[in-house]
């Protein structure tokens, strides 16, 4: 269970990215967060693993209050929460396997990780994660040589290698073309359904959101404008979230047909 309680984030310079947000996400749910850029989607997701600290209010992940953790406890929390990024954030110059093993950093002794002495268990786990996203054959290839969709699958594998209970995905398909976007979304859905990992995904495209989400949270100006099942989110709801009428840019398939 993830619980936001009056969560507020104000950045230096006075921009309020989250404005007294109250949200409860039960375990195992697949939640899609929609909103325009600058609506606070990224901030909401990064508040869960403490990459962005709250200005006021609280976030709880399970029984842990993110704001009250020591550095060491925060690292332990982050190890328990996997994250996937818009630009994949892989180290281009090293192998896919090494990138996935980054997900194990918090679980191995520091001196061993410095020398790169991964145990057989760690490598086995990384390989299994790669198998979940069906890209294990590329394990020893440099990440730079993969296509965008393949890189994002490696990003998912890295998060899975953490054996997380929560998965955060920040605009995971914004850098990908439509067919690849669907493929990545299906992998996220599969991970959520088969491994029961609570999943929070930021999306810009409302048709993708409607297709994959159990539940949609709409943000505008840091406030929750809509919170309900994906099936209930019709065009009216989206127009309310976006504060304007919908355009071709807001849907993935329209873009594909251009």
């Amino acid at each position: 269970m993830i619980r936001f309680d009056q969560a507020t984030v104000t950045y230096r310079g006075g921009v309020t990215a989250l404005d007294h947000v109250d949200v409860e996400i039960p375990d195992g749910e697949f939640v899609v967060i929609v909103g325009l850029s600058g609506a606070g989607k990224s901030t909401l997701i990064r508040a869960v693993n403490g990459l962005v600290p709250l200005t006021s209010g609280t976030v709880n992940v399970g029984d842990r209050d993110v704001g009250q953790l020591t550095k060491r406890q925060l690292r332990a929390l982050r190890a328990d929460v996997g994250m996937i990024f818009q630009h994949f954030n892989l180290v281009d110059r090293t192998t896919v396997l090494n990138n996935v093993l980054m997900g194990r950093l918090n679980r191995v002794p520091s001196w061993r990780s410095m020398l790169g002495w991964w145990g057989g268990d760690e490598v086995e786990l990384a390989m299994q994660s790669l198998e979940v996203v069906e890209i294990v054959d590329k394990a020893y290839i440099r990440a730079a040589n993969l296509s965008g969709g393949q890189q994002q699958r490696v990003g998912i594998a890295r998060a899975l290698a953490q054996q997380p209970s929560v998965l955060l995905a920040d605009e995971p398909v914004a850098s990908l073309d439509p067919p690849t976007s669907h493929s990545v979304m299906r992998y996220l859905q599969k991970v959520n359904r088969e491994l029961g990992i609570t999943t929070l995904v930021n999306l810009h495209f409302l048709d993708l959101a409607r297709e994959y989400a159990d539940r949609i949270i709409g943000l505008r100006g840091g406030r929750v404008m809509f919170d309900g099942p994906g099936s209930a989110a019709d065009e009216k709801v989206f127009e309310k979230i976006y504060g304007r009428s919908l355009t071709a840019d807001d849907v993935l398939e329209a873009e594909a047909s251009l």
Binding site: V136, D137, A139, S183
Partner: peptide, 27 residues
């Protein structure tokens, strides 16, 4: 990304499905 290679857009197989062979660690 400049690559144009598309992923297989078909539905992902179950995680236990026999997928690609694990590669050997290269020298």
């Amino acid at each position: 990304m400049s690559q144009v290679e598309h992923d297989d857009a078909g539905p992902p197989a179950a995680s236990t499905a026999p997928g690609a062979q694990r590669p050997k660690r290269p020298r």
